[in-house]
Each structure stands twice: as structure tokens, then as C-alpha cells.
Amino acid sequence: MVKKTLATLGIALLIALPSSGMATPQQDLEDFRDYYQKRFPGTPFDDFINGVYSIDKASRDQWEEIEEFPPYELNISKGEAEFNKPFANGKTYASCFENGGIGIRQNYPYFDTERGEVITLELAINECREANGEKKLKWKRGPLANISAYMAYTSRGKVFDIKIPDDPRAIAAYERGKKHFYQKRGQLNMACADCHKFYAGNKVRADLLSPALGHLTHFPVYRSKWGGIGTTHRRYGGCNKQVRAKPYKAQSAEYRALEYFHTYMSNGLVVNGPGARK
């Protein structure tokens, strides 16, 4: 009996593996959504923005209590102050972004066809500073994460709409991110997909594994374990380290490609960042 279930599981895993290069991003997206909706029939599509809390009633109740006095509130107000503070040259962040930087989180990351690379929100924030003669901020936490949190907050409710332009370099970046997601790595030999797709909803020790659908709607995230806020690439580094793989640098081409694929997979869901997690 056990053997039989294991065998079927094995077959299911085989079928679920990507037939790389064949599918278009649009097809990938549909398959991705279908997969999670079949795996979690009790979770309405729109609710996947809540990560692990979209699939577990018990932890959701605790979390809803936390959300009544959100731990990231201070990060948002610090981020707002920083966002509005003029640079030495008198300009502000608003000058670097569409719509003055308000309500635009859902368009990041995007593929810049002139530069031929993926631009994440955090990268754009630091490039804005540099263009205005200011020093770059640290990538993973602190003021940069606060500004990102504020910008996400002003975008709550907007629908993610990541585009893959018809440019071979954009497709290549998407495929690179997809490969990272499905490829086993590290001494422990595990893929992002192992934990956040094939075993989403199962427990590693006491930790319930969140579905990757909706992962990036709520970043940056305030994490009790961090005692603060962190960006997407901070989390990527952490999950790479968990499997004893060498993490890539924050904002490396590798992580930007991963974020591009990973966010594209949440198209159609709304921004609800910043989030709070344990």
C-alpha cells in the first residue's frame, strides 16, 4: 500500500517536471495555477497571496491577530519618510519612477529591452540614488527594504502584470529563472520546486511549506525570525543556504532572473506587501 502510493507519487513528480524549452511562459503560468488549485481545492485563487496562511486555518487565525497591529508598520512609515526626503541635489525618488513611484509595485521586476536585463524594484531604487549622486543602500534589509515596503504598501490591491517582451534576451532571463526554480542544488540536493511546489502544504519538521503561487505578492516581508524586514533576495539566500548551496549575491543576474520567473507566476494576483511571517 505504502509502496503503491510512493510509486504513484513518483510518477506524479515525473509528469510535473517541466518540459523545458517547450512551453511558452503563458502556458507555464496556466499549468502553474492549475497545479496549485488542484492541490489546494479549498483555497480560492485570490487567497494565494497569503502564502502559508492561505492553506492552513490554524496558523491563519494567529496571523490575523498579528495583522491587527502589523509589525511592519514602523517600516512603512520610515520608508515613507525616506522616500520623500530630498537628495542633496533637491530631487526625490519620485523623479525616477512612473507616477512618482506610487502604486507601481505590480510592474516589478520588468525586462528593460534597452539594457537587456531584468530590473527589480530594489535595483531601481538604488540606481535612482546613484543617478542623483547618493550612495547605494544595502540590498537585503534596513532603509532599502523600508522604501520597498512603503512602495508596495502604496500599491496594495493592484494586480501583478509582469510582461515577457518578445525579445530573446527576455525569454532567456525567464528560462534562467525557471531553471533555478526547478533545479536541485546544494549538498542536500533540493529544488525550490521540491519544497514550494511538489511538497507545498507538507511539513518540514514543524514548518508548513508555502505554495510558490503568490509567494512574491507580499514582499518585502517582516519576519519574526529576522526580527525585522527583508527583501526577496534575502529570502532567496536563506532558502539556498538551507539546502547547503552557496547563495548568489543579492541583485545578481541569477536572482533577478529567478525573481522574474517567480513573480510572473503570480500574475493575476494583487499586491499585498509588505507581509508578516514568523
Partner: peptide
């Protein structure tokens, strides 16, 4: 036994 297994290869990878 299962090339896609999530179980780490404890000996082979010198874990």
C-alpha cells in the same frame, strides 16, 4: 530509486 526524490543523498553527497 527515485531520481526526483526530495530525500538528500546522505552518503553520496558526504552529508
Amino acid at each position: 530509486k527515485n531520481p526526483n526524490t526530495i530525500m538528500p543523498p546522505f552518503g553520496k553527497h558526504r552529508i
